[in-house]
Amino acid sequence: MVNLSVDIGRLTLKNPVMTASGTFGYGEEYSEFLDLNRLGAVVVKGLSPTPRQGNPVPRVVETPSGMLNAIGLQNIGIKAFVKEKLPFLRRFDTPVIANFFGDSVEEYVAAAGELSAAEGVAALEMNISCPNKQAGWIVFGTDPCAMKEVVSAVRKATTLPLIVKLSPNVTNIGFMGKVAEECGADAVSVMNTITGMVIDVKKRRPVLANNTGGLSGPAIRPVAVRMVWEVCRAVSIPVIGMGGIMTAGDALEFLIAGARAVAVGTANFVNPCATVEILEGIARFMEEEGISDINKLIGSLTVN
């Protein structure tokens, strides 16, 4: 038996394999295919204080070894989540991490407050990749000043472990991680999707109704591994690694680069049992390599 348990700040996970927000619904969509008890944590679809309708279709398009999505943060709202979805998730011995967002600092604070008051939310993950409408569509996640303001405000509004999900659409992601840490984040998730575009050449139009979307899947994995490595060197809080993880070998790259845990996203769409298969693969690798504790593997990278 190997020890797979990891700590994300005050939150202890029985293993480092989580789901990535937006790729696992509210958990119940996949409960038919796997035992949610086996997961390190379930990160649910991004929530806002009020329900969101999302973007028109097409919302998704496949790309070489990946996909673009522009769902537009469609969600049922925090109240409906707490009433209709959370009771189901409470039945499992797996921490629930609520991903949330808002269009203003006030909305972020309101969302964090409401989720903190709900029974069964173990931690919060802030999606800061949305634009701040009040500040003229500056994206919270790419402008360090906007990010500082919103993360500091949310920090005051919750005592739950706070994870900030960083955008890769920046020049220096290590610096952004440092800003999150200084504002009181307990951990950072690295990374969100990379903005991309696919054009229908016959129509001379973008395929997605939203024109651009977020690229995910194995196509972005080397970028994500590099960004995790950079953030790990810049901050001293735990880093949760994600971006195109399909197999245990992929997850191991992130752990060795320094990620304390990993999140599986697009792979769930391809294989609903991906999370559990990745977890089993990590344990098998550790046994083969004679590593008894996953914490000895985390950050074990030797650079050339």
């Binding site: 969509e29 279709v57 919302r59 769902i71 769409f269």
Partner: peptide, 17 residues
């Protein structure tokens, strides 16, 4: 029919108005 990613209701990609 609509562009579909997961098929199980998780990704919200294949919606219809």
């Amino acid at each position: 029919e609509e562009h579909m990613a997961c098929g199980v209701g998780a990704c919200l990609g294949c919606v219809v108005k």
